[in-house]
Every structure is written in C-alpha cells, then in structure tokens.
Simulated assay, not measured.
Amino acid sequence: MQLVVARVGRAHGIKGEVTVEVRTDEPELRLAPGSVLATEPASVGPLTIETGRVHSGRLLLHFAGVSDRTGAEALRNVLLIAEVDPENVPDDPEEFYDHQLIDLDVVTADGAVVGRIAEISHLPYQDLLIVKRPDGSEVMVPFVAEIVPEIDLTEQRAVIDPPPGLLDEEQAETARGGDDA
C-alpha cells in the first residue's frame, strides 16, 4: 500500500536542502536517511533521502543527486510516497496509523452519515481528520477522544460526537438529534 508521507516545500539554503510538510505520524521511520520514496508526479522520483534534520521546528531533507538550490526548487510541491505494509499496526490499541484511518466512513453516534476520511493532518497539538462529505465539501474533525469516541476497523467506520458548529447547521441539527426533514 502506498501512502503520501510528505510534501516538499521551499528550498532551504544553497546546497539542495528542502523543507517538507510532514503527512505521517512516524517521520523518524518513513523519512529517515536511506529511505527511497516514490513521488507524485512519478517522473520526478524515486528520491533517496541522504540526510534529515530539524531547523526552527521544520524538517529539512536532502535528497541524493540534488546538490543546489535550483534542484531543490524544482522539487517544490512534489508529494513523497512510501510503501507501507497494511498489516503493520501500532502496539497500543488506542493508536492508529494513517493508512488504517484513510477511507473509513464517518458517522455520528445516531448513525447520520458525515462522509469519509480523506486525509489526516498532523499538527503540533493534535491531529485532524479531513472528512470528505457526500456533497464534495470537507470538514476538519479534531482527532480527540471527546469528539471521536470510536474507531471500528472491523466495520470500517469512525463514530464522531461533534460539538455544535463543527458540522454545518443541517448536519449539526442531525447530530444533536433534531428533526432530519
């Protein structure tokens, strides 16, 4: 299974380093020196990570064959993709890898369909589930136990208990048990 683990940002300095927007909960594993990553667009890669370091709170990577700022700038917005074993799961039953959550159906406690998890955004203080709704819009759901009390991998669904205003008014009414007319 292939998963997007990062997006290349701006060049950093003149020796070919780039900033990356991390999209994995295990950057130390997926973005370690020696890792070979596929890319989107595919014509750019694969890319091999030579070095990685944190500078001012941002992860900087240097790829084999990228020796200057021009080469680094050419990689801007390229998605980095890792091959992940779908059978690989965390030891703690309360933890989940991104690949376990992507494509889960999202429903409220009373069964109202909210959408499907399209992406997980890893922020410094909490993770967000990016939920694609049936109408094509997206909603960001904080991935905390109070709002996402249940992940059922067997049923392939995430149950949420959204606070008022998290979903649009119609969905918020449904979540509060209002009439669904």
Rank of each mutant, 00 (worst) to 15 (best):
T19M: 04
K15C: 01
D179Q: 08
G13P: 15
V89W: 05
L79N: 11
V113E: 09
T51F: 13
L101F: 06
G111Y: 03
L104W: 05
S137K: 11
L153I: 10
L47S: 02
V8I: 15
A64C: 06
A145R: 14
D135P: 12
D68L: 07
V131R: 05
E170D: 04
F96G: 11
Q100E: 13
V84L: 14
D105Q: 13
A32Q: 09
A11H: 04
L128P: 08
R157D: 09
A38Q: 14
A32D: 01
Q156G: 13
T48L: 04
T174L: 15
Q2H: 12
P90A: 00
V54S: 12
R116F: 09
R7P: 01
A72L: 11
G45C: 01
P124Q: 00
G45Y: 07
V141H: 00
D180N: 07
T48G: 06
L128I: 02
G57A: 01
L61V: 06
Q100S: 08
A175I: 09
N77L: 15
I147Q: 01
R53I: 02
R69C: 07
V18E: 00
L80N: 10
D135H: 11
Q100C: 01
V4A: 00
I151N: 00
S67W: 10
R58D: 10
G165T: 03
D135I: 13
L101T: 02
I81N: 01
A145W: 08
A72F: 03
V84P: 00
T154G: 12
A118D: 10
D135V: 14
L47N: 07
A82Y: 09
F63M: 04
E95L: 15
G13L: 02
T24V: 10
Q2A: 01
A158Y: 05
P164D: 06
R23Y: 08
V89K: 05
E87W: 10
K132G: 07
S35V: 05
R69M: 08
A72N: 02
E119Y: 03
A6S: 05
D103P: 02
V5Q: 07
M140F: 04
D180F: 11
P86T: 09
P134N: 13
R23N: 04
E95I: 00
H12S: 13
A38F: 08
E17C: 06
I130P: 06
G65M: 05
I151A: 05
A32V: 14
E28M: 11
D127M: 08
V8G: 06
A158M: 07
E169H: 13
T70Y: 08
E87A: 14
E150D: 09
S67M: 06
P90F: 04
D180L: 14
A6R: 07
F143D: 09
H55E: 15
A74D: 10
E155Y: 01
P93K: 02
V44R: 03
D92W: 08
V141I: 15
M1K: 00
I130C: 05
H122W: 13
G178D: 03
I120H: 00
V54L: 12
V22C: 10
T39G: 02
D152L: 12
Q171D: 06
S56D: 10
Q100F: 05
A32F: 11
P86D: 05
R53C: 09
Y97S: 09
A42S: 13
E83M: 10
E169V: 12
L123I: 03
